[in-house]
Design a protein around this nucleic acid. Structure first.
Lengths: 187, 187
DNA sequence: GACGCATGCAAGCAAGTGCTTGCATGCGTG
DNA sequence: CACGCATGCAAGCACTTGCTTGCATGCGTC
């Protein structure tokens, strides 16, 4: 009966259920059902729930294109690329980022998995610092700059899920404009 | 044996465990233990787990001082008051806000409980709109303005818990300065 | 065609969890 | 003192959940 099941199908299901119901709520039975797979198959393949979920997260995060965190010299273009990237991250699995951030605070393994994506934040900081040094951006602590650029996106992604009214992600252009307002040097 | 137990003690315990482990992880046994109370007492008093937790959240959120969301005419002073308030909210029970936002996305009752605090955001929007109209602030969609002011705090509160390095909340003065940079009219 | 292998299926087990209950105990109030 | 009342305690029940296992089945490979 039935073809061999792809890992991807189970990962998809696992992440969908995880994002929607959290780690504890993501029961192996629900994941199996969502994947259209027998529960036993999950265990035979991944050993236990934790490894399944960790593998799913790992595969998913690894699939994210590496951020184009380069200084091309064109400040605005660089920022737009970054904002588009993060908007994508928030959208690509609805609510997953929030869940991972929360769950990461409780589970060291999850924390380890999201470590690299988080590290990209400080890489972004360095890019911004470069533009500060070159005089394109007003100087400020790089943490502040990073927050100024990305925090609104995070806030939107969180609020979207708890409020009834539909909140849309603004386009990258707009986000960057807001960020640059007051930060451009009077060059 | 033992004096009557105050609701507050159970609420404290419930919220502490809730913030740390989420709704599913906040078992009645753990809450009882944290409160130094017998599990049966929880049920006798509150009926079931859900009502206990909802009552705890309600009592706690109700205890938050009403935001001083008034336009005094002194823009900077108003903003500082607001930022201090929200910094407080994030700090006052470590991680609770994040948990509630996440849990609120899954549980309509929790969503209902945090509705009022969330509504204060749109009230803040109106205050800011007032300052835009009076020419103190550059015009922009009020949602953007609210996010510009508070999103960094939210991001910090989230990142604090997943990163090993200690991230401190900036003081209100700093937050407001960052917000005002680029938003003050050239009056 | 025979074999191996991944899967489905169904039953089930052990642990955890929400919740109940009967009983004893101690405190305050009349 | 007597009574009521809130609590502690311990046992336990029903259900969920992670995980296992034995068996049948179908697919690809040799």
């Amino acid at each position: 009966m039935s073809d061999p099941v792809s890992d991807a199908r189970m990962f998809d299901a696992a992440l969908a259920v995880l994002a929607q119901r959290g780690y504890a709520g993501a029961t192996t039975r629900k994941i199996a059902e969502a994947a259209g797979v027998n529960e036993a198959t999950l265990f035979r393949r991944f050993g236990d729930k934790r490894q399944l979920i960790l593998a799913a997260i790992h595969a998913d995060l690894g699939q994210l294109p590496k951020v184009a965190l380069t200084s091309s010299g064109d400040l605005e273009a660089d920022l737009i690329r970054v904002v588009e990237y993060y908007t994508n991250v928030y959208q690509h699995r609805d609510g997953l980022v929030g869940t991972l951030l929360l769950e990461g605070a409780r589970d060291p393994d999850v924390a380890a998995l999201i470590k690299e994506p988080l590290a990209s934040l400080s890489r972004l900081g360095k890019v911004l610092a470069g533009y500060q040094k070159s005089g394109h951006l007003v100087p400020e602590p790089t943490d502040f700059a990073v927050q100024g650029l990305l925090a609104p996106l995070l806030m939107i992604s969180v609020l979207r899920r708890v409020t009834t009214s539909e909140i849309a992600y603004p386009d990258a252009q707009t986000v960057v404009q807001r960020f640059l307002g007051g930060r451009l040097t009077a060059a």
